[in-house]
């Protein structure tokens, strides 16, 4: 009991004694940890989105505008009867034009330069399998057919998005490493100041035979507390960011594309746990360094 009261009292005096340093340390931890959370969430979100796309993947066979109507039907039958293909859907040039004019509604001068005949008709094909290897070979088969202008699979887009997210994550990870390093140093510094302020007490404690771990404990606790508070603030900030971004995606038409970039609540729980733990680890590291530097016998 007396021990618990002692540690509580010492830690509280330490924190009160250098509030500005404590504040700076906690804030840096919070920002660093928030970045960790952002990186994790970006990873989860892109993973989720890509899973969904790859699951419902299709490819599109564009037809030569000069193609014979009988050839169109023949190709349709061949696609329909292919064992690897689930179902198909035909889009005429007019339908394609309707889609484009809908997308370009606010750019009429651009739309004016597009004529319905210039747009190719196409078959949208949904394969039975979602394996991208198989889809690629299927696409390759039909690319050779007469009357086919081109075949587009979603693979390039998926790959491009994946690359984009990977580099985004890389940058965030790098930033969070830098900030975590800075937080370790700031906590180290604030604990060092706390130790300096209490050097007399430490000297007496060593004199009367307090163990090293007893002397260290309040400082370690303080550093851990910095990290924990910073971690919690960072997690809250990451949560707020998540809500804000998802709100933005669902409200904005321009960002509608990103609507599938969501983090499930169980994934978010994992993110919160990891960010808080990261904060605590940073706190323990900073104070452990300070203790080993300045508290040895």
């Amino acid at each position: 009991m007396s021990r618990i009261r002692y540690f509580a009292r010492e830690t509280w005096t330490n924190i009160r004694r250098n509030l500005t340093l404590t504040f700076a340390a906690i804030l840096t931890v919070a920002v660093g940890v928030m970045l960790v959370g952002m990186g994790l969430m970006a990873g989860y979100a892109s993973g989720n989105a890509l899973d969904r796309w790859e699951g419902g993947v299709q490819f599109e066979v564009f037809l030569n505008p000069q193609i014979d109507p009988s050839q169109i039907d023949a190709l349709g039958i061949e696609l329909q009867n292919h064992p690897e293909i689930d179902r198909i859907e035909f889009f005429s040039s007019e339908e394609a034009y309707a889609l484009v004019s809908q997308q370009m509604a606010d750019q009429p001068e651009l739309l004016a330069q597009v004529s319905p005949e210039a747009l190719p008709a196409s078959y949208r094909v949904v394969p039975r399998s979602v394996e991208s290897e198989l889809i690629e070979s299927l696409a390759a088969q039909f690319r050779q057919r007469p009357g086919v202008m081109s075949v587009q699979t979603g693979r390039e887009e998926v790959d491009a998005i994946r690359t984009w997210f990977t580099s985004f994550q890389g940058i965030v990870l790098l930033l969070s490493i830098v900030l975590s390093g800075a937080s370790v140093m700031l906590i180290f510094n604030s604990i060092r100041v706390a130790m300096f302020a209490r050097r007399r007490e430490i000297e007496v404690m060593k004199l009367v035979g307090a163990t090293n771990s007893f002397i260290r404990f309040p400082f370690m606790l303080e550093g851990m507390l910095h990290g924990l508070i910073g971690g919690i603030i960072g997690a809250i900030a990451a949560g707020a960011l998540r809500g804000h971004v998802e709100g933005l995606f669902s409200r904005s038409e321009i960002l509608a594309f990103f609507r599938s970039f969501v983090v499930t609540s169980s994934q978010f729980t994992t993110v919160v746990i990891i960010t808080v733990i990261a904060g605590v680890v940073v706190g323990i590291l900073g104070s452990a360094f300070a203790a080993s530097r300045f508290l040895d016998v």
């Binding site: 007396s2 007496v204 004199l207 009367v208 035979g209 002397i215």
Partner: peptide, 30 residues
């Protein structure tokens, strides 16, 4: 060190603690 008491020329008392607290401190921290 718990078996050895030490006294110095400069006392090494903690200025922000009372007489009682200074003495109690030695027991508290062990």
């Amino acid at each position: 060190r718990r078996n050895i008491g030490s006294v110095f020329q400069d006392f090494k008392l903690l200025p922000n603690k009372t007489v009682y607290q200074n003495v109690a401190f030695a027991l508290e921290v062990i």
